[in-house]
Amino acid sequence: QIFVKTLMGKTITLEVELSDTIDNVKAKIQDKEGIPPDQQRLIFAGKQLEDGRTLSDYNIQKESTLHLVL
């Protein structure tokens, strides 16, 4: 699992595989929060994550926290 922190300070827990693409992750956030993926920007280690890449491409591990910017 990974964590996604919103600017409102809310933390969302997502069940993911490290082979999941950023697209997949955004879809899971949409399922939980109702935010359309095209409005989501995910940040990790100061970098904006690109849709076609996977979590492992960015060296994101289990229990990592991503930041969601709208």
Rank of each mutant, 00 (worst) to 15 (best):
I12H: 14
I29M: 10
N59Q: 13
L7A: 15
G34P: 02
Q30W: 05
N59T: 13
I2V: 02
Q40K: 04
K62Q: 01
G52R: 08
G52N: 07
K47F: 15
R41W: 10
P37C: 10
K32T: 09
R41P: 02
G34C: 04
G9W: 03
D38W: 02
K62M: 02
Q30G: 11
I43E: 15
P36I: 12
N24F: 07
Q61M: 13
S19C: 01
S19W: 03
K28F: 10
I60K: 02
L18H: 07
K26V: 11
Q39G: 07
N59S: 12
T21D: 04
T11D: 13
V16R: 01
Q61Y: 13
D38Q: 04
L68M: 05
A45P: 03
Q40Y: 02
S64A: 12
V69W: 02
L14W: 00
T6S: 04
L18I: 05
K5C: 14
Y58R: 02
L14F: 08
T11C: 08
L70F: 09
T13R: 14
E63H: 08
D20W: 11
L70A: 15
K47L: 15
K10P: 05
T65F: 13
R41E: 15
T21W: 04
I22G: 07
Q40M: 04
K62V: 10
G34D: 09
E50I: 11
I29H: 00
Q30E: 09
T11K: 14
A45V: 10
F44W: 02
L66E: 14
V25M: 13
G9I: 01
Y58N: 14
E15L: 09
N24I: 08
L14H: 01
Q40N: 05
S19K: 03
N24R: 08
Y58H: 11
I29T: 02
N24Q: 13
E50R: 15
P36Q: 08
P36Y: 07
I22T: 07
I43M: 13
K10W: 04
K26W: 15
T21L: 03
I43T: 15
K32W: 13
D38S: 03
K62E: 14
E15T: 03
L42V: 10
A27G: 06
Q30H: 05
K28V: 09
K26F: 14
R41M: 13
L55H: 00
Q61F: 09
F3M: 02
E17S: 06
L7W: 15
A27D: 11
E50M: 13
V25H: 00
F3V: 12
T6D: 14
L49E: 00
E50W: 12
S19D: 01
I29F: 05
G34T: 07
L68N: 15
Y58V: 13
L18E: 08
L49K: 00
T21R: 06
E33P: 01
E63L: 02
I2N: 00
T21E: 04
S64E: 12
D23N: 10
D57P: 00
Q40V: 05
Q61L: 06
L70Y: 11
S56G: 04
F3A: 06
T6K: 02
E15A: 10
T54S: 11
D38A: 07
K47Q: 14
L18D: 06
P36T: 07
D57M: 13
Q1V: 10
L42P: 00
